[in-house]
């Protein structure tokens, strides 16, 4: 067909989802955006404007960098968990939504009918489930050490990619595009490797901030000195 040459990552193109799945994912995504706008407005923090701007800009750019995984396949950072760790789940969701809208409308990456699904799969699952997994592990194991943060970040980012793969597989099978028993194992195998890339990149970025500007993290570590910002 050749029309598939343009898409990157786990972005679902037009034609893969049925009308009911398209409608349901759009309704959920619009509701999520609406809630995220209200929550972010109420919990507004001063550093939010620049941090949301540069985080989203970085995630957009990083999503263009496909890294090779075995057997002639590639993957790239999704960035949802990174957005959640930097901005918190609500503002992180908004940053991801802007990234997906620009990718879809300007660069035809991801279908227009699949935008809702793509926002849920790569935005919501990373920003919420990824963030809360990270938070749970980090605060359970003790919030002092770099390695705890790295473990929490790596684990959460890997899980967020696997969850996104499950979500894509479910949506494709509900749409009648492919049988779940076929697509689910295939997606999980490939994304268990892509998830390692996600974990390495997310840990690298968060570690750099942990050492240089820990105050920029949504949950700063306890050794962060309070700055008068």
């Amino acid at each position: 067909m050749g029309v598939g040459l343009l898409w990157l990552g786990m972005h679902i193109p037009d034609g893969f989802l049925s009308l009911p799945v398209t409608a349901l994912t759009y309704v959920l995504a619009v509701a999520l955006v609406f809630l995220a706008l209200r929550q972010t407005e109420q919990a507004y923090a001063d550093k939010l404007v620049p941090l949301m701007g540069v985080s989203a800009a970085f995630i957009f750019a990083a999503q263009m960098i496909n890294f090779p995984v075995l057997g002639g396949t590639s993957g790239h950072l999704l960035g949802g968990t990174l957005a959640g760790i930097l901005l918190g789940p609500w503002a992180g969701t908004l940053a991801m939504v802007v990234v997906f809208i620009v990718q879809t409308l300007l660069f035809q990456d991801g279908g227009l009918t699949a935008l809702g699904a793509n926002i849920l799969n790569m935005g919501l699952l990373g920003t919420f489930i990824g963030y809360y997994l990270y938070r749970t592990v980090r605060f359970t194991l003790g919030d002092q050490h770099w390695w705890v943060m790295a473990l929490a970040t790596g684990f959460a980012s890997w899980c967020s990619v696997m969850l996104a793969a499950v979500a894509v597989a479910l949506q494709l099978s509900w749409s009648g595009t492919v049988v779940l028993g076929v697509v689910l194992p295939a997606m999980l195998v490939v994304h268990s490797l892509i998830g390692i890339g996600e974990a390495v990149l997310t840990v690298a970025v968060v570690s750099f901030l942990w050492r240089t500007r820990p105050d920029l993290l949504f949950d700063p570590p306890p050794f962060t000195k309070k700055e008068l910002t």
């Binding site: 037009d14 090779p68 396949t73 409308l105 492919v178 490939v190 892509i194």
Partner: peptide, 26 residues
Amino acid sequence: ASPNPDGLNRVAEDYNFQQSEIPSWT
């Protein structure tokens, strides 16, 4: 960046559901 097909693209190729894709509405 690697020009290889990515995860979903690769699965769609391997399991023959890539033909479901239609030219993007975008």
